[in-house]
């Protein structure tokens, strides 16, 4: 019965993947991809990775939004020649076949760090091992990953025309928002914020955490902007910039404090691990929410003259 459910999920996943690759219209393909993301989130639940499922559902929606917004850019371009496509198809089939063979030949019992990851949890006072991996054992990855996101935003800002780069980005639809959207943008954000804070707070002990919460807050912010309830912020604004770098800066500063107590970079003092981690998560959530929203909005732009 459970295997049947898995089989249905896998079949749906592959059909949606094929559809979004092969659909004629770019918009259909982007919508197909959003459906793919939702099914993928269910697959992650089936794989026992609820944290990943939440992240996939939240971030996948933003990715879908980006792709959907770019469908007008799909320019018809020349396909590679038929023999070349056949050769590429052969190569890709070889890769897929090889991977499938390796999946079937995987070692049994599988190697795992699960036991090693659980052992220090009590000392850290954390209940969710994924949070422990992200903010203790492999905190350097997480720190650098937030730097990656900051760098992506700077890269996107650098694409602006010279005169507009410190100005506000264009918000699609904000000039003539429809009344129902304005209603939604008034009703939903408070609920969304409560849910985000809940997800963030339980993240230390149960599935949830900063990425999921930040994506939710970013989505609420985008909704408010797209409904025209608030103007898009100017990208040169110092307070906005401070929000963007504040989280990573605090994370880095606390990491460097680790050199003094307890004596290692990105190590947390004994007994204080949980408060420090929660503090970092709150700061990172704020910064990531702003970052993700700004990334979706894009570089500064001039409003087209009416």
């Amino acid at each position: 019965m459970k295997l049947a459910l898995d089989a249905v999920l896998v079949a749906t996943l592959l059909v949606l993947a094929l559809f979004s690759l092969a659909a004629r219209q770019a918009r259909a393909s982007a919508i197909g991809f959003m459906g793919f993301g939702l099914v993928l989130a269910l697959v992650w639940v089936r794989l026992g990775a609820v944290d990943v499922a939440l992240t996939e559902a939240a971030v996948g929606a933003l990715t879908g939004l980006l792709l959907l917004g770019a469908t007008s850019l799909a320019t018809p371009a020349a396909q590679p020649s038929r023999p070349l496509r056949l050769a590429l198809a052969g190569l890709c089939a070889l890769v897929a076949g090889g991977l499938a063979f390796l999946v079937l030949e995987a070692p049994d019992p599988a190697p795992s760090l699960a036991a090693a990851a659980v052992e220090p949890l009590a000392a850290l006072d954390l209940g969710n091992p994924v949070t422990a991996v992200l903010l203790a054992y492999r905190a350097l990855d997480t720190l650098l990953e937030t730097v990656v996101v900051v760098l992506a935003l700077i890269g996107i800002w650098s694409l602006a025309p010279d005169a507009d780069w410190r100005g506000a980005p264009m918000v699609p639809g904000a000039d003539a928002p429809s009344p129902p959207l304005r209603l939604l943008a008034r009703l939903l954000p408070p609920v969304g914020l409560v849910v985000a804070v809940h997800i963030l707070w339980i993240g230390a002990d149960a599935p949830g955490g900063k990425f999921q919460a930040a994506t939710l807050i970013a989505a609420m912010g985008l909704l408010v902007l797209m409904a025209g309830l608030a103007p898009a912020p100017k990208l040169g604004n110092t307070r906005l910039r401070a929000l963007v770098v504040g989280g990573p800066a605090l994370f880095l500063a606390l990491g460097l404090l680790g050199f003094l107590v307890p004596g290692s970079f990105l190590a947390w003092p004994e007994g204080l691990a949980k408060p420090v981690i929660v503090l970092i998560e709150v700061a990172l959530t704020t910064s990531l929410a702003v970052l993700l929203a700004l990334i979706v909005l894009g570089p500064g732009a001039r409003r087209p003259r009416a």
Partner: peptide, 25 residues
């Protein structure tokens, strides 16, 4: 690699979370 009472090995799960955010960027 599920072990120690967990539904899965948390290390690769955390790697995927990092990876998803990077792919979005």
């Amino acid at each position: 690699g599920a072990a120690a009472g967990l539904p899965g090995d948390p290390v690769p799960q955390a790697l995927v979370i990092t990876g998803i955010v990077v792919a979005f960027a």
